[in-house]
């Protein structure tokens, strides 16, 4: 619910600045590539881009048939290729992350909700196949206490065999507007960060732990580089 409304406001903001969808896709792609965890699926953006790609494909076909200047056609084709490359790379980066952190994503509702419908199906089926493979090849041959894919043994108190993204990893980000010190999230496990007063001017680059800018990234106040 909450994410839905936030979605709406960022969308409005974007349309005010009149950025093209291609630019938005580039930003989404950069963010997705640089962030350690899976980000919210840009459903509306991807839908729009897919529409534009289809339209462009039809245009190119039309032009080829009607014999429009081959140079113009090839330029449109290049534009089409570039957009498709970006979209594929975006989706592939997501698949890679889903595969990598599959168990973590499936057991964390918040992350699971960030996937698209198709990605959810993929994640479930992929987890099924991997789970079956692990069971067949190793786990079922182990003593009963050690048969879980999630835990080292039944004595473990939590799921300690699930790979999670490292959120304290450093990322490079660029502020898109002025960010005041209070907007950065606290780095709960380290007192060191507190003595550093942090603010960002638009366009300024910083190396910073991902955890501290997670929400700023979501709200679009900064982007990854």
């Amino acid at each position: 619910m909450e994410s839905g409304s936030r979605d709406g406001t960022t969308e409005d903001l974007e349309s005010l600045i009149a950025t093209t969808d291609a630019e938005l896709l580039r930003r989404a792609w950069r963010n997705e590539k640089a962030a350690p965890e899976i980000l919210r699926y840009e459903k509306h953006l991807v839908d729009r881009i897919e529409g534009q790609i289809q339209l462009m494909e039809e245009t190119v076909d039309d032009y080829t048939e009607t014999g429009v200047d081959p140079l113009t056609v090839s330029l449109y084709q290049m534009d089409l290729d570039r957009t498709q490359f970006l979209l594929r790379s975006y989706l592939r980066t997501r698949l890679l992350k889903i595969e990598r952190f599959i168990l973590h994503i499936l057991k964390t509702d918040e992350l699971h909700e960030r996937l698209s419908d198709k990605e959810k199906i993929f994640a479930r089926r992929c987890a099924g196949v991997i789970g079956k493979h692990l069971d067949d090849s190793v786990l079922l041959n182990l003593p009963e206490n050690y048969q879980s894919a999630l835990r080292q043994s039944t004595t473990s108190e939590e799921d300690d065999m699930v790979l999670e993204p490292r959120l304290d990893t450093f990322v490079v980000c660029k502020a898109r507007e002025y960010i005041s010190p209070s907007e950065f999230q606290d780095d709960s496990n380290s007192s060191l960060s507190m003595d550093l007063i942090l603010e960002m001017e638009p366009g300024e680059l910083s190396f910073i732990p991902y955890r501290r800018v997670q929400r700023l990234l979501e709200s679009g106040k900064l982007e990854m580089v």
């Binding site: 960060s193 550093l196 680059l205 910083s206 190396f207 910073i208 732990p209 501290r212």
Partner: peptide
């Protein structure tokens, strides 16, 4: 004590 580093106008390739 470095918990974040700010760099002004570093270029993409340098980053």
């Amino acid at each position: 004590r470095t918990s974040a580093v700010q760099i002004k106008s570093l270029s993409a390739m340098e980053v």
